[in-house]
Computed example of a mutant assay.
Amino acid sequence: MQEKGKIRLGISIGDLNGIGCEVVLRTFEDVRMLDFCTPIIFASNKTISNQKSALGIEINYNGIQEPAKALDGKVNVINVWREALVPEFGTPTPESGSFAIQSLKAAVTALKNDEIDLLITAPINKNNIQAEDFKFPGHTDYLAQELEGESLMFMVSDGLRIGLLTDHVAVKDVAAAITPKLIRSKITTMEKSLKMDFGIRKPKIALLGINPHSGDNGVIGKEDDEILKPVIKEMIEKGHLVFGPYSADSFFGSDNYKQFDAILAAYHDQGLIPFKTLSFGKGVNFTAGLNKVRTSPDHGTAYEIAGKGIADHSSFKEAVFAGLNIFKNRLEYKELTSDILKKQKLKR
Rank of each mutant, 00 (worst) to 15 (best):
G300T: 03
V293L: 11
A266F: 10
G289R: 07
P245H: 08
T295S: 06
L241K: 15
L290E: 04
D298M: 11
S296V: 10
A266Q: 14
K276E: 02
L278N: 12
Y267E: 09
S296Q: 04
F260K: 04
G283I: 00
F251N: 01
P245C: 14
F243A: 14
L272I: 07
L264M: 09
Y267N: 02
I263W: 11
G253K: 04
F243S: 15
N256Q: 15
F243N: 12
L241G: 10
N256C: 14
K258V: 07
G253E: 07
F251P: 05
K292I: 11
K292T: 12
A265N: 03
H268V: 04
L278G: 07
D255Q: 13
Y246A: 12
F251I: 00
K282Q: 15
K258N: 11
Q270V: 04
Q270N: 04
Q259L: 15
G283P: 00
Y303V: 07
L241I: 14
S247G: 15
G253M: 09
G244H: 12
V284S: 02
F275R: 00
A248L: 10
F251R: 00
S247F: 12
S247K: 12
G253W: 01
A266Y: 09
G289P: 05
F260C: 05
F260Q: 00
Y267T: 05
F280H: 06
V293C: 11
A266E: 04
P297S: 10
E237Y: 12
G253N: 10
V242Y: 07
F243V: 11
Q270S: 11
T295C: 12
I273G: 06
S279P: 02
L278A: 07
G244M: 11
K238L: 15
D261W: 03
L290T: 05
L278W: 08
Q270L: 05
H240E: 13
S296I: 09
H299I: 03
K282R: 15
F275I: 01
S250G: 14
N256R: 15
E237K: 15
D249G: 11
S279T: 13
Q259A: 15
S254K: 13
I236G: 14
Y267L: 03
P245E: 09
F243Q: 14
G281H: 05
S247N: 14
L290D: 02
T277S: 14
N291K: 10
V242C: 13
G281Q: 09
